[in-house]
């Protein structure tokens, strides 16, 4: 294996300009133990980097990643010191993924657990079909975010684009900035003490210091849960 161990820090380093993506992912899947710390340099927008991790390891990626970085993550803590391409942390099961820059479309799609933190903005469809994971976005999210989100939480410190929470199930969204428009069946509801505690906890985990009182709660009006034969059927 081409990873280089620093004897002082015990950090194992890979450089994607000299080691293949497949070799790095193979190492992360088969040759790590809980507590290991791995650095990856020069990702240069590679797809599928650090996907399917299953151990409680720390992975620091120094640069920008391509599609599906840290997808299907379990237990690991992956930090991207750069921007992430489409579908970062998609279908995450547990653990933590932290994007220090901005994230492209579909960040955290279908995540079933774990925490995704994006320091910058997230593109369209952030948290689409969220199934139990938590997402904290330091900046704003694009249109159609949390579309059909079923469980979990999204904390949006900036603004939300069009059709936020369209066809929401039981995921709950908290927005600090402006909401351009709500999607079908999404509604703004009063913040309860429980909501404030959830927001405070997620902000603390994400390292943001906003006041939980500044957030609005968006949840499902549950009007689409059952077929309504009297509703206008335009399509």
């Amino acid at each position: 294996m081409d990873g280089v161990m620093n004897p002082t820090t015990n950090i194992i380093s890979f450089d994607l300009t000299t080691t293949s993506l497949r070799d790095v992912n193979h190492y992360l899947h088969h040759q790590v133990s809980p507590g290991n710390h791995i650095d990856i340099h020069h990702p240069n927008g590679a797809h599928n980097l650090a996907v399917g991790l299953q151990e409680a390891i720390a992975v620091d990626i120094h640069g920008h990643t391509g599609y599906y970085a840290a997808g299907m993550n379990q237990l690991a803590s992956v930090t991207i010191h750069g921007n992430a391409g489409a579908g970062v942390a998609e279908n995450m099961m547990s653990g933590r993924v932290h994007v220090k820059g901005f994230a492209s479309v579909s960040a955290g799609a279908s995540a079933q657990g774990g925490l995704l933190v994006i320091d910058g903005d997230a593109g369209l469809r952030c948290g689409i079909s969220l199934k139990g994971g938590d997402i904290v976005v330091g900046g704003s999210v694009g249109s159609f975010s949390a579309f059909m989100a079923q469980a979990g939480h999204m904390v949006i410190c900036g603004d939300a684009g069009d059709a936020l929470g369209d066809s929401l199930y039981e995921a709950v969204l908290y927005v600090r900035g402006n909401i351009k428009s709500l999607g079908a069946d999404a509604q703004i509801e009063p913040m309860t003490e429980d909501d404030q505690a959830i927001v405070a906890n997620l902000l603390e985990q994400a390292g943001f210091s906003h006041n939980p009182n500044d957030f609005q709660r968006v949840a499902s009006a549950r009007q689409l849960y059952h077929w309504n034969a009297d509703a206008k059927q335009d399509y």
Binding site: N44, G45, A46, H64, G66, Y67, N83, G85, G123
Partner: peptide, 20 residues
């Protein structure tokens, strides 16, 4: 995608953004 920009000179200091 960024992978086509990764090798440009001084890319580490470029302003990067996704067009809206």
């Amino acid at each position: 995608e960024f992978r086509s920009l990764a090798h440009l000179p001084d890319i580490d200091h470029a302003t990067l953004y996704e067009p809206a």
